[in-house]
């Protein structure tokens, strides 16, 4: 009995999917606009998914948000303005990549710093521990050494 109601409820959900289907089929898409839409949509996080952009998400809200992106771009707004619109509604959280300024620079800078410092360390280790000249095969060299 309980199960039956649940299945009925599930099918009601099924109906919700229909909402996204437009009455008339969309006209032949403007491919340049589509490309710009995709580029912006790929940077916005889907609010009802986890860590997926609204470009990639099959969720209904993501498709609708993509529609908003498309409309705003078509109306002449710049990609930055479109992103700013979504930030004003959802907060910085909506950006899949934190803006590279202020405190967020830390996320970009720390790995770069590690590589720079690491290269220095490697240089020191190599210089300090290397044989001066191409050395004859030492005792430590195993069977792998080329002939």
């Amino acid at each position: 009995m309980m199960r039956r109601t649940l299945v009925a409820l599930a099918l009601a959900v099924a109906g919700a999917g229909a909402q996204a289907v437009p009455e008339s089929l969309p006209p032949r898409a403007d491919s340049a606009l589509e490309a710009r839409t995709s580029a912006v949509a790929a940077q916005l996080r889907c609010p009802v998914c986890q860590g997926v952009s609204i470009q990639d998400s099959p969720a209904e809200l993501a498709q609708q948000m993509r529609g908003v992106v498309r409309d705003q771009l078509a109306a002449g707004r710049s990609p930055e303005e479109v992103k700013a619109y979504f930030i004003s509604k959802y907060g910085e959280w909506i950006l899949l990549e934190p803006e590279a300024r202020g405190f967020n620079l830390l996320a970009y800078g720390l790995p770069a710093l590690l590589i720079v410092v690491g290269l220095g360390v490697v240089a020191v280790v190599v210089r300090r521990n290397s044989a001066r000249a191409p050395a004859p095969a030492s005792a430590a060299v195993g069977v792998d050494e080329e002939p």
């Binding site: 940077q43 909506i94 790995p111």
Partner: peptide, 27 residues
């Protein structure tokens, strides 16, 4: 280290700035 920073950065940013940020595929 990069993957670790990216994974933890939302938490770090919240601790430091009190703002929720996302770190996803583009980063």
């Amino acid at each position: 280290f990069t993957v670790l920073v990216g994974t933890l950065f939302p938490l770090v940013a919240e601790a430091a700035r009190g703002v929720k940020v996302s770190v996803g595929e583009p980063f």
